[in-house]
């Protein structure tokens, strides 16, 4: 199946700063792909490159079979883009905005538009400039969902919204999920965990991993090993162990390849005097915190070595 989005060595620099370094990303059809990572990781840059708002410094990207450089005009009848920073025409009322954008889309579904207006409780006669941030996001999303785009791209859609609005937005989004592919960037890991099918983790312009959510949560485990007597960590700590720590007779780390039962057996061999080995499933948030901390530590160590 042709992926909806595919990038090859996609890079973008701002002066001497590399915002994105050689990104290879594949998003399959009907995926709900969550792009996560700390601030400044390059999430928004990827999305703007895919939407042809920015031009790449190197590499290429395909969106719905079109080179990203050609994503313009009619291609946008199949793409819905909503961003937290989007400048909406604030002089328009909600009703006029919908009236204005409707003729641009041959697939605009008036019944769905009405449904979304009710679902999001949008006041048609209010000017956008008089709406709250959450309401504006709902208007933007309604103006996107109503034409049933094949690809929905959301850049930090839930940022700074109250939980009620977030739930409404997610609900509206999920109703359209079966017919669309969704790419969204977010800090809100808890919400993403509940509905994303795929996840990619971006750190300092590099995609550290990109995989299905189920696989990810399967393979990450919080490991706690209780030893009969203190034992040092192995001289060569496997790269699959993140943030290993020893406190007395207890060793803790995050195992990144614990998907099958082999991990427990492997650990038992490494620590033969272990009294107890516990592998606990992790939330998305704890997975990313572990990765982020590990990445930060490695980076510091790298800088230390370079110094």
């Amino acid at each position: 199946m042709t992926p909806v989005i595919q990038t090859r060595n996609l890079s973008r620099s701002y002066g001497r700063t590399d915002a994105l370094k050689g990104l290879d990303l594949t998003i399959p059809k009907h995926a709900i792909y969550a792009l996560v990572g700390p601030n400044g990781a390059g999430k928004t840059t990827i999305i703007k490159l895919l939407m042809n708002i920015l031009r790449p410094t190197a590499g290429s990207a395909q969106v719905l079979g079109h080179p990203a450089a050609n994503v313009a005009g009619e291609v946008f009848t199949h793409i819905g883009y909503v961003s937290e920073n989007q400048e909406l025409p604030e002089w328009m009322t909600v009703g006029y905005l919908l009236d204005y954008v409707r003729p641009f889309y041959p697939t605009w579904d008036v019944a769905l538009e009405q449904h979304l207006l009710r679902q999001f409780d949008l006041p048609l006669d209010r000017k956008l400039k008089h709406l709250s941030r959450g309401m504006k996001m709902k208007v933007a999303l309604a103006s996107v969902l109503a034409y049933r785009p094949a690809l929905i791209v959301l850049d930090e859609p839930f940022s700074g919204l109250d939980p009620l609005v977030r739930d409404e937005l997610i609900e509206g989004l999920l109703e359209r999920a079966p017919e669309s592919t969704i790419l969204l960037s977010s800090h809100d890991l808890a919400e993403i965990e509940s509905f994303a099918t795929h996840v990619g983790y971006l750190d300092r312009g590099r995609l550290l991993f990109s995989e299905e959510m189920a696989t990810l949560t399967d393979r990450f485990r919080e490991v706690e090993i209780t030893l009969n007597q203190p034992q040092p960590l192995p001289a060569a700590v496997p790269s699959t162990w993140l943030q290993p720590q020893t406190v007395g007779t207890v060793i803790r780390f995050t195992h990144t390849k614990a998907a099958d039962g082999a991990a427990a057996t492997e650990l038992a061999q490494i620590f033969p005097n272990a009294r107890d080995i516990t592998l606990t499933p992790m939330t998305l948030r704890s997975i990313f915190l572990a990765i982020a901390k590990s990445s930060s530590t490695n980076s510091s160590a790298q800088k230390g070595r370079e110094a």
């Binding site: 920015l54 005009g73 291609v75 946008f76 009848t77 961003s83 989007q86 400048e87 025409p89 954008v101």
Partner: peptide
């Protein structure tokens, strides 16, 4: 507006 990265119309099916 033709300057900036956050204009609403840029990601709509406008033909220039």
């Amino acid at each position: 507006p033709l300057v900036g990265e956050s204009q609403f119309w840029v990601t709509r099916p406008y033909q220039w």
